[in-house]
Protein backbone atom coordinates (compact mmCIF):
# COMPACT_ATOMS: atom_id res chain seq x y z
CA UNK A 1 0.00 0.00 0.00
CA UNK A 2 2.88 2.35 0.80
CA UNK A 3 4.03 2.24 -2.81
CA UNK A 4 0.59 1.78 -4.31
CA UNK A 5 -0.83 5.02 -2.97
CA UNK A 6 1.24 7.33 -5.23
CA UNK A 7 0.09 5.33 -8.24
CA UNK A 8 -3.49 5.48 -7.04
CA UNK A 9 -3.13 9.24 -6.54
CA UNK A 10 -1.76 9.58 -10.06
CA UNK A 11 -4.67 7.58 -11.45
CA UNK A 12 -7.25 9.72 -9.68
CA UNK A 13 -5.44 12.89 -10.78
CA UNK A 14 -5.64 11.75 -14.39
CA UNK A 15 -9.39 11.12 -14.00
CA UNK A 16 -9.83 14.52 -12.37
CA UNK A 17 -7.72 16.05 -15.14
CA UNK A 18 -10.03 14.47 -17.71
CA UNK A 19 -13.01 16.02 -15.98
CA UNK A 20 -11.23 19.39 -15.81
CA UNK A 21 -10.37 19.37 -19.52
CA UNK A 22 -13.94 18.35 -20.30
CA UNK A 23 -15.24 21.26 -18.21
CA UNK A 24 -12.95 23.63 -20.13
CA UNK A 25 -14.42 22.41 -23.41
CA UNK A 26 -11.28 20.64 -24.61
CA UNK A 27 -11.59 17.03 -25.78
CA UNK A 28 -10.12 15.19 -22.79
CA UNK A 29 -8.49 12.40 -24.78
CA UNK A 30 -6.59 14.83 -26.95
CA UNK A 31 -5.64 16.99 -23.99
CA UNK A 32 -4.28 14.09 -21.97
CA UNK A 33 -2.37 12.87 -25.02
CA UNK A 34 -0.87 16.31 -25.57
CA UNK A 35 -0.06 16.58 -21.87
CA UNK A 36 1.48 13.21 -21.09
CA UNK A 37 2.33 11.32 -24.27
CA UNK A 38 3.21 13.77 -26.99
CA UNK A 39 6.23 15.28 -25.19
CA UNK A 40 7.79 11.81 -25.06
CA UNK A 41 7.33 10.86 -28.71
CA UNK A 42 10.77 12.17 -29.71
CA UNK A 43 14.32 11.69 -28.45
CA UNK A 44 14.50 15.45 -27.98
CA UNK A 45 11.46 15.25 -25.74
CA UNK A 46 13.15 12.66 -23.53
CA UNK A 47 16.20 14.88 -23.26
CA UNK A 48 13.96 17.81 -22.29
CA UNK A 49 12.47 15.58 -19.61
CA UNK A 50 15.95 15.18 -18.19
CA UNK A 51 16.51 18.95 -18.36
CA UNK A 52 13.39 19.59 -16.28
CA UNK A 53 13.84 16.61 -13.96
CA UNK A 54 17.40 17.54 -12.98
CA UNK A 55 16.61 20.62 -10.83
CA UNK A 56 13.51 18.95 -9.41
CA UNK A 57 15.45 15.87 -8.36
CA UNK A 58 18.36 17.89 -6.96
CA UNK A 59 16.09 19.95 -4.73
CA UNK A 60 13.51 17.30 -3.84
CA UNK A 61 15.95 14.64 -2.73
CA UNK A 62 17.57 17.12 -0.35
CA UNK A 63 14.23 18.45 0.88
CA UNK A 64 13.10 14.88 1.55
CA UNK A 65 15.92 14.52 4.08
CA UNK A 66 14.68 17.61 5.90
CA UNK A 67 11.04 16.54 5.79
CA UNK A 68 12.06 13.20 7.33
CA UNK A 69 13.65 15.07 10.22
CA UNK A 70 10.66 17.39 10.59
CA UNK A 71 12.58 20.38 9.24
CA UNK A 72 10.18 22.33 7.02
CA UNK A 73 12.33 24.21 4.55
CA UNK A 74 9.87 25.52 1.99
CA UNK A 75 12.14 28.29 0.72
CA UNK A 76 14.10 26.18 -1.76
CA UNK A 77 12.98 28.53 -4.52
CA UNK A 78 14.85 31.36 -2.83
CA UNK A 79 17.92 29.21 -2.23
CA UNK A 80 17.85 28.30 -5.93
CA UNK A 81 17.73 32.00 -6.80
CA UNK A 82 20.69 32.79 -4.56
CA UNK A 83 22.67 29.93 -6.11
CA UNK A 84 21.97 31.42 -9.51
CA UNK A 85 22.98 34.89 -8.32
CA UNK A 86 26.26 33.79 -6.70
CA UNK A 87 27.30 31.40 -9.47
CA UNK A 88 26.05 33.74 -12.20
CA UNK A 89 27.87 36.64 -10.56
CA UNK A 90 31.13 34.71 -10.85
CA UNK A 91 30.38 34.02 -14.53
CA UNK A 92 29.85 37.73 -15.18
CA UNK A 93 32.88 38.73 -13.14
CA UNK A 94 35.15 36.28 -15.05
CA UNK A 95 33.53 37.19 -18.33
CA UNK A 96 36.82 37.49 -20.21
CA UNK A 97 38.53 34.50 -18.62
CA UNK A 98 38.55 31.42 -20.78
CA UNK A 99 39.74 28.71 -18.42
CA UNK A 100 38.57 25.29 -17.37
CA UNK A 101 38.34 26.34 -13.70
CA UNK A 102 35.66 28.97 -14.29
CA UNK A 103 32.78 26.50 -14.38
CA UNK A 104 33.74 24.54 -11.24
CA UNK A 105 34.19 27.85 -9.44
CA UNK A 106 30.69 28.92 -10.53
CA UNK A 107 29.17 25.64 -9.38
CA UNK A 108 30.91 25.98 -6.02
CA UNK A 109 29.67 29.56 -5.80
CA UNK A 110 26.14 28.40 -6.51
CA UNK A 111 26.26 25.73 -3.83
CA UNK A 112 27.69 28.14 -1.26
CA UNK A 113 25.19 30.85 -2.20
CA UNK A 114 22.27 28.49 -1.68
CA UNK A 115 23.75 27.28 1.60
CA UNK A 116 24.28 30.82 2.84
CA UNK A 117 20.65 31.71 2.11
CA UNK A 118 19.47 28.52 3.84
CA UNK A 119 21.70 29.29 6.81
CA UNK A 120 19.53 32.29 7.69
CA UNK A 121 16.37 30.31 8.59
CA UNK A 122 18.57 27.60 10.17
CA UNK A 123 20.24 30.19 12.40
CA UNK A 124 16.96 31.88 13.32
CA UNK A 125 15.41 28.49 14.07
CA UNK A 126 18.22 27.22 16.27
CA UNK A 127 19.05 30.53 17.95
CA UNK A 128 15.66 32.25 18.28
CA UNK A 129 13.18 29.37 17.85
CA UNK A 130 11.66 31.13 14.82
CA UNK A 131 9.36 29.13 12.52
CA UNK A 132 11.53 28.01 9.61
CA UNK A 133 8.44 27.66 7.43
CA UNK A 134 7.73 31.39 7.49
CA UNK A 135 11.30 32.69 7.45
CA UNK A 136 12.46 30.46 4.59
CA UNK A 137 9.41 31.46 2.56
CA UNK A 138 9.82 35.20 3.24
CA UNK A 139 13.43 34.93 2.06
CA UNK A 140 12.17 33.54 -1.25
CA UNK A 141 10.48 36.86 -1.99
CA UNK A 142 13.59 38.75 -0.88
CA UNK A 143 15.77 36.60 -3.16
CA UNK A 144 13.53 37.21 -6.17
CA UNK A 145 13.69 40.97 -5.54
CA UNK A 146 17.47 40.82 -5.15
CA UNK A 147 17.81 39.08 -8.53
CA UNK A 148 15.46 41.63 -10.09
CA UNK A 149 17.54 44.45 -8.60
CA UNK A 150 20.77 43.03 -10.01
CA UNK A 151 19.54 42.39 -13.55
CA UNK A 152 17.76 45.75 -13.70
CA UNK A 153 20.80 47.54 -12.39
CA UNK A 154 24.48 46.71 -12.06
CA UNK A 155 24.42 43.41 -13.94
CA UNK A 156 22.35 44.50 -16.92
CA UNK A 157 23.83 43.69 -20.29
CA UNK A 158 25.48 46.91 -21.57
CA UNK A 159 24.59 45.93 -25.15
CA UNK A 160 21.16 44.57 -24.28
CA UNK A 161 18.90 47.48 -25.32
CA UNK A 162 17.96 48.05 -21.67
CA UNK A 163 16.25 44.69 -21.27
CA UNK A 164 16.52 43.42 -17.70
CA UNK A 165 18.96 40.66 -18.58
CA UNK A 166 22.62 40.02 -17.92
CA UNK A 167 24.98 39.36 -20.80
CA UNK A 168 25.14 35.81 -22.12
CA UNK A 169 27.67 33.69 -20.26
CA UNK A 170 30.93 32.95 -22.05
CA UNK A 171 31.59 29.45 -23.40
CA UNK A 172 33.85 28.67 -20.46
CA UNK A 173 30.96 29.46 -18.12
CA UNK A 174 28.42 27.29 -19.92
CA UNK A 175 27.53 23.86 -18.63
CA UNK A 176 28.47 21.18 -21.20
CA UNK A 177 25.70 19.33 -22.99
CA UNK A 178 26.02 15.58 -22.52
CA UNK A 179 23.79 14.51 -25.39
CA UNK A 180 24.68 16.30 -28.65
CA UNK A 181 21.74 17.91 -30.42
CA UNK A 182 19.72 18.36 -27.22
CA UNK A 183 19.83 20.61 -24.16
CA UNK A 184 20.49 17.73 -21.74
CA UNK A 185 23.33 18.97 -19.54
CA UNK A 186 25.54 17.88 -16.67
CA UNK A 187 22.82 18.72 -14.16
CA UNK A 188 21.18 15.33 -14.53
CA UNK A 189 24.28 13.32 -13.54
CA UNK A 190 24.73 15.71 -10.59
CA UNK A 191 21.16 15.03 -9.50
CA UNK A 192 21.46 11.27 -9.85
CA UNK A 193 24.73 11.31 -7.89
CA UNK A 194 23.11 13.32 -5.09
CA UNK A 195 20.14 10.96 -5.00
CA UNK A 196 22.47 7.96 -4.72
CA UNK A 197 24.49 9.67 -1.98
CA UNK A 198 21.37 10.53 -0.01
CA UNK A 199 20.14 6.96 -0.38
CA UNK A 200 23.40 5.63 1.11
CA UNK A 201 23.34 8.28 3.83
CA UNK A 202 19.78 7.54 4.90
CA UNK A 203 20.08 3.77 4.88
CA UNK A 204 23.69 3.19 5.94
CA UNK A 205 25.01 6.09 8.01
CA UNK A 206 24.60 7.29 11.58
CA UNK A 207 23.57 10.73 10.35
CA UNK A 208 20.75 9.17 8.36
CA UNK A 209 19.64 7.17 11.38
CA UNK A 210 19.67 10.28 13.57
CA UNK A 211 17.55 12.14 11.04
CA UNK A 212 14.96 9.38 10.96
CA UNK A 213 14.83 9.09 14.75
CA UNK A 214 14.52 12.83 15.34
CA UNK A 215 11.77 13.04 12.75
CA UNK A 216 9.72 10.16 14.06
CA UNK A 217 10.34 10.44 17.78
CA UNK A 218 11.98 13.69 18.87
CA UNK A 219 11.95 12.66 22.53
CA UNK A 220 13.72 9.38 21.80
CA UNK A 221 16.26 11.30 19.73
CA UNK A 222 16.97 13.69 22.58
CA UNK A 223 17.28 10.80 25.02
CA UNK A 224 19.78 9.12 22.73
CA UNK A 225 21.80 12.32 22.72
CA UNK A 226 21.13 13.29 19.09
CA UNK A 227 21.34 17.01 18.55
CA UNK A 228 18.21 18.55 17.05
CA UNK A 229 20.13 21.75 16.48
CA UNK A 230 22.77 19.98 14.40
CA UNK A 231 20.03 18.22 12.44
CA UNK A 232 18.35 21.51 11.56
CA UNK A 233 21.66 22.92 10.39
CA UNK A 234 22.49 19.80 8.40
CA UNK A 235 19.10 19.65 6.66
CA UNK A 236 19.17 23.33 5.73
CA UNK A 237 22.78 23.18 4.52
CA UNK A 238 22.03 20.12 2.38
CA UNK A 239 18.84 21.53 0.89
CA UNK A 240 20.33 24.99 0.41
CA UNK A 241 23.40 23.58 -1.30
CA UNK A 242 21.35 21.34 -3.56
CA UNK A 243 18.93 24.13 -4.46
CA UNK A 244 21.83 26.49 -5.08
CA UNK A 245 23.41 23.93 -7.37
CA UNK A 246 20.08 23.57 -9.20
CA UNK A 247 20.02 27.34 -9.62
CA UNK A 248 23.50 27.70 -11.07
CA UNK A 249 22.95 24.62 -13.26
CA UNK A 250 19.80 26.23 -14.68
CA UNK A 251 21.40 29.59 -15.48
CA UNK A 252 24.67 28.15 -16.79
CA UNK A 253 22.88 25.43 -18.76
CA UNK A 254 19.49 25.88 -20.43
CA UNK A 255 19.20 29.64 -19.78
CA UNK A 256 22.77 30.86 -20.27
CA UNK A 257 22.33 34.25 -18.59
CA UNK A 258 20.65 35.84 -15.58
CA UNK A 259 17.00 36.89 -16.02
CA UNK A 260 14.40 38.17 -13.55
CA UNK A 261 12.55 34.84 -13.73
CA UNK A 262 14.86 31.85 -13.84
CA UNK A 263 12.66 29.09 -12.43
CA UNK A 264 9.07 28.04 -13.15
CA UNK A 265 8.62 27.29 -9.45
CA UNK A 266 11.02 24.33 -9.23
CA UNK A 267 11.58 25.00 -5.53
CA UNK A 268 7.87 24.65 -4.76
CA UNK A 269 7.19 21.77 -7.14
CA UNK A 270 10.08 19.92 -5.50
CA UNK A 271 7.99 19.79 -2.31
CA UNK A 272 5.35 17.81 -4.23
CA UNK A 273 8.08 15.66 -5.75
CA UNK A 274 9.48 14.82 -2.31
CA UNK A 275 6.10 13.75 -0.95
CA UNK A 276 5.06 11.90 -4.09
CA UNK A 277 8.35 9.99 -3.92
CA UNK A 278 7.58 8.94 -0.33
CA UNK A 279 10.68 10.89 0.87
CA UNK A 280 12.77 8.03 -0.54
CA UNK A 281 15.51 8.86 -3.10
CA UNK A 282 14.38 6.24 -5.62
CA UNK A 283 10.75 7.27 -5.36
CA UNK A 284 11.78 10.92 -5.56
CA UNK A 285 13.65 10.21 -8.81
CA UNK A 286 10.54 8.68 -10.37
CA UNK A 287 8.36 11.51 -9.06
CA UNK A 288 10.80 14.08 -10.46
CA UNK A 289 10.34 12.54 -13.93
CA UNK A 290 6.56 12.66 -13.58
CA UNK A 291 6.46 16.29 -12.46
CA UNK A 292 9.02 17.20 -15.14
CA UNK A 293 6.58 15.67 -17.61
CA UNK A 294 3.81 17.86 -16.23
CA UNK A 295 5.94 20.94 -17.05
CA UNK A 296 6.63 19.67 -20.57
CA UNK A 297 2.99 18.71 -21.02
CA UNK A 298 1.87 22.13 -19.84
CA UNK A 299 4.11 23.82 -22.41
CA UNK A 300 3.00 21.44 -25.18
CA UNK A 301 -0.68 21.88 -24.32
CA UNK A 302 -0.20 25.64 -24.36
CA UNK A 303 1.17 25.50 -27.90
CA UNK A 304 -1.04 22.82 -29.48
CA UNK A 305 -4.31 23.26 -27.59
CA UNK A 306 -3.98 26.87 -26.47
CA UNK A 307 -4.48 25.85 -22.85
CA UNK A 308 -3.17 28.24 -20.20
CA UNK A 309 0.10 27.37 -18.49
CA UNK A 310 -1.69 27.47 -15.14
CA UNK A 311 -3.09 24.01 -15.92
CA UNK A 312 0.29 22.64 -14.83
CA UNK A 313 -0.06 24.16 -11.37
CA UNK A 314 -3.61 22.88 -10.98
CA UNK A 315 -2.54 19.40 -11.97
CA UNK A 316 0.42 19.46 -9.58
CA UNK A 317 -1.75 20.65 -6.72
CA UNK A 318 -4.38 17.98 -7.42
CA UNK A 319 -1.70 15.32 -7.45
CA UNK A 320 -0.54 16.30 -3.97
CA UNK A 321 -4.12 16.45 -2.67
CA UNK A 322 -4.94 12.99 -3.93
CA UNK A 323 -1.66 11.64 -2.62
CA UNK A 324 -2.42 12.94 0.87
CA UNK A 325 -5.93 11.55 0.64
CA UNK A 326 -4.70 8.14 -0.52
CA UNK A 327 -2.27 7.98 2.39
CA UNK A 328 -5.25 7.38 4.62
CA UNK A 329 -5.34 3.92 3.06
CA UNK A 330 -1.87 3.29 4.45
CA UNK A 331 -2.70 4.41 7.94
CA UNK A 332 -6.15 2.90 8.21
CA UNK A 333 -7.98 -0.11 6.92
CA UNK A 334 -11.26 0.75 5.29
CA UNK A 335 -14.20 -1.20 6.61
CA UNK A 336 -17.77 -0.80 5.54
CA UNK A 337 -20.06 -1.04 8.53
CA UNK A 338 -23.68 -1.56 7.64
CA UNK A 339 -25.20 -0.97 11.03
CA UNK A 340 -24.26 1.67 13.54
CA UNK A 341 -22.90 -0.05 16.61
CA UNK A 342 -23.34 2.99 18.82
CA UNK A 343 -26.96 3.95 18.52
CA UNK A 344 -27.56 7.61 19.17
CA UNK A 345 -23.94 8.59 18.44
CA UNK A 346 -22.70 9.48 14.99
CA UNK A 347 -20.12 7.09 13.57
CA UNK A 348 -16.68 8.61 13.45
Amino acid sequence: MVYLSPLLALGISLVAGTVMFGAMGVPPGGALYAFFVEPLTSAYGWAELGVKAAPLLLIAVALAVGFRAGVWNIGAEGQLTLGAICGGGIALWLYRVDAAWVLPLMLAGGVLGGMAWAAIPAFLKTRFNTSEILTSLMLTYVAALLLSLLVHGPWRDPDGFNFPESRLFSDAATLPVILPGTRLHLGLPFALALAAAVWVMLSRSLVGFQIKVIGQAPAAGRYAGFSERATVWFCFALAGGAAGLAGIVEVSGPIGQLLPGISPGYGFTAIIVAFLGRLHPLGVALAACLLALSYLGGEAAQITLNLPLAVTGVFQGMLLFFLLACDVLILYRMRIRLRNRHPGKAAA
Partner: peptide, 14 residues
Protein backbone atom coordinates in the same frame (compact mmCIF):
# COMPACT_ATOMS: atom_id res chain seq x y z
CA UNK B 1 -1.65 23.52 3.66
CA UNK B 2 1.24 23.72 1.22
CA UNK B 3 -0.79 21.75 -1.32
CA UNK B 4 -3.65 24.20 -0.81
CA UNK B 5 -1.38 27.13 -1.67
CA UNK B 6 0.05 25.43 -4.77
CA UNK B 7 -3.39 24.34 -5.96
CA UNK B 8 -5.07 27.66 -5.17
CA UNK B 9 -2.37 29.59 -7.04
CA UNK B 10 -2.81 27.40 -10.12
CA UNK B 11 -6.60 27.25 -9.99
CA UNK B 12 -6.97 31.01 -9.54
CA UNK B 13 -4.69 31.64 -12.51
CA UNK B 14 -6.72 29.19 -14.59
Amino acid sequence: GLALTIFGTGLSAL
